[in-house]
Design a protein around this nucleic acid. Structure first.
Length: 485
RNA sequence: CGGGGCGUGGCGCAGCCUGGUAGCGCACCUGAAUGGGGUUCAGGAGGCCGAGCGUUCGAAUCGCUCCGCCCCGACCA
């Protein structure tokens, strides 16, 4: 329980969710503010979490046939401006380099807000024939978007991400690729981060500037607000046409290839925090937890310390004797602090399991095993624990996912009138599935009057005749309304 | 850009009204005891009081100007 008077005490979620989030990020030492407004410093513990999801996603990207590449940080102004909708969408957020080498530049350089423009220009010479397609690339990089309001991990001026960029001979192939990208995100979110997501399509007003359409995954945070967790865009021929990319197809006709792009960012670290965390701090899914099991030795005298150390060594040796067990990330906390201090320290950092081993446990050949998520405590024989630990971590991972999914489902409601929607948003909040006519005007009205947006048109939303909650016109299916980050 | 608030050791704050050589809690270092839910005690290190100008014998404190940050609004994925 958080106590007052300690530097590491954190705001309660129920009291002030954004305050809780900030406390956790700073006090669990995930990140820090930087001298540059809106930018963040990612500290070792936070970067380790990012690296874990990065490695997992990179595996999915490579298995689906994409190769990692690199393109420059700077985008010449003329290139960024080639695709009309793209410039219009990004211009307000672009940071420009106007001087270099002590002189004003002839042509300004944008610090990439995303790389569609420079990639489209660069690959036009690589694509001559349908045989050069598909071209499947991915970049891990940093981008800069000048934001008015920033939040650590969730929206920072500079952020780290991955952007996949692909080119295809046909529209059908490109559309299948949009699905491939979204599927990678779905898997990483649900299987690695234990964050249940809703897959769907963005409305036209929410789609990527320069895209024909955008697909996304949306997740519910513990304050019941929505967070866009990844987007996959069908770029059609827009960028290819703007950059003059052409290939000669089988039928001997010159055509523009179809493009896609999809991105997943450090925002997902924030999503992980806000999906699982509680009043004691982080609750990390074992897959991403830099430390999966922390061992807290308890002793008074030197003899006791030696006996405890020996028991820990033996436990670790047994654990390391199986391939699965050897991969478990264990940390033994020998620091000269009280056990209680260490419990709080590691709970704040979200370590899934804590093992307490003291003289009484050594005598009984056991350890006290405490689960972070519910603080349940259990005495387990050491040998048995070493054998079971990998399975227990898997079960813990599944438990977090189920818990998050149940929470989301319990806070997702069907509403049929505008009044119900407003009452719901102003009441307990959550996700609201409601009929919508498809009109941008009704969409805007809801946003202006309630602050909620259409998060997506869920793929699993069945065909259902209804009346738009705003204008009453015919609706074919329900869409997802929520207040969002 | 409009409204409100705040800048004092790493963090959180007091001191300012009523000028007089900077203090507290946490964190940090040393030592001893302690150790199963934030452990004590003792000793210690650390501050151009956001910046500049002014008033004054003397400014963290009073005045003016500037800079920065936070919250709300506006804007924005």
């Amino acid at each position: 329980m958080p106590k007052e008077g300690f530097v590491t005490s954190i705001t309660r979620q129920s009291e002030d969710f954004p305050g809780w989030y900030n406390d956790v990020v700073l006090k669990a030492e995930l990140a820090d503010y930087s001298p540059v407004r809106g930018c963040m410093i990612i500290r070792p513990y936070g970067y380790a979490i990012w690296e874990s999801m990065q490695a997992e996603l990179d595996g999915h990207i490579k298995r689906t046939g994409h190769s990692n590449v690199y393109f420059p940080l700077f985008v010449p102004k003329s290139l960024l401006e080639k695709e009309a909708a793209h410039v219009e969408g990004f211009n307000p957020q672009v940071a420009w380099v106007t001087h270099a080498g002590g002189k004003a530049l002839d042509e300004w350089l944008a610090i990439r807000p995303t790389s569609e423009a420079i990639i489209a220009d660069s690959v036009k010479d690589w694509i001559q024939s349908y045989r050069d397609l598909p071209l499947l690339m991915n970049i891990w990089n940093n981008v800069v978007r000048w934001e008015l309001r920033t939040r650590l991990f969730l929206r920072t001026t500079e952020f780290l991400w991955q952007e996949a960029h692909t080119f295809h001979a046909t529209s059908e192939e490109a559309e299948a690729e949009v699905a491939t990208g979204l599927d990678c995100y779905d898997k990483v979110s649900e299987e690695w981060l234990a964050i249940p997501v809703i897959k769907g399509r963005k409305t036209d007003s929410e789609k990527f500037p320069g895209a024909d359409f955008t697909w996304c995954i949306e997740a519910m945070m513990r304050d019941k607000k929505a967070l866009q967790a990844g987007t996959s865009h069908m770029l059609g021929q827009n960028f290819a046409r703007a950059a003059g990319i052409e290939f000669l197809d089988r039928d001997n006709v010159r055509k523009h290839p179809y493009g896609t792009s999809w991105g997943f960012s450090t925002r997902m670290v924030g999503a992980t925090i806000m999906t699982h965390g509680d009043d004691s701090g982080l609750v990390l899914p074992p897959n991403v937890a830099p430390v999966q099991v922390v061992i807290v030795p308890i002793f008074r005298k030197d003899e006791e310390k030696a006996a405890v150390a020996e028991a820990i060594d033996r436990f670790q040796a047994v654990l390391a004797s199986t391939p699965e067990g050897a991969k478990v990330r264990v940390k033994v906390d020998w620091r000269d602090d009280s056990p209680g201090f260490k419990y709080n320290h590691w709970e704040l950092r979200g370590v899934p399991f804590r093992m307490e081993i003291g003289p009484r446990d050594v005598a009984a050949g056991q350890a006290m095993l405490v689960k972070r998520v519910d603080r349940s405590k259990e005495a387990v024989p050491l040998e048995q624990l070493a054998a079971e630990l990998p399975a227990r971590l898997r079960a813990y991972q599944a438990e977090l996912f189920d818990r998050a999914r149940d929470f989301r489902d319990a806070n997702t409601h069907h509403v049929d009138t505008y009044q119900q929607l407003k009452d719901g948003l102003d009441g307990d909040g959550g996700f609201f599935l409601a009929p919508w006519c498809g009109g941008a005007k009704c969409e805007r009205q809801v946003n202006e009057e309630t602050g909620a947006t259409i998060r997506c048109i869920p793929f699993d939303s069945p065909a259902e005749a209804g009346k738009c909650v705003v204008c009453g016109a015919a609706s074919e299916r329900r869409v997802l309304f929520a207040r969002a980050y």
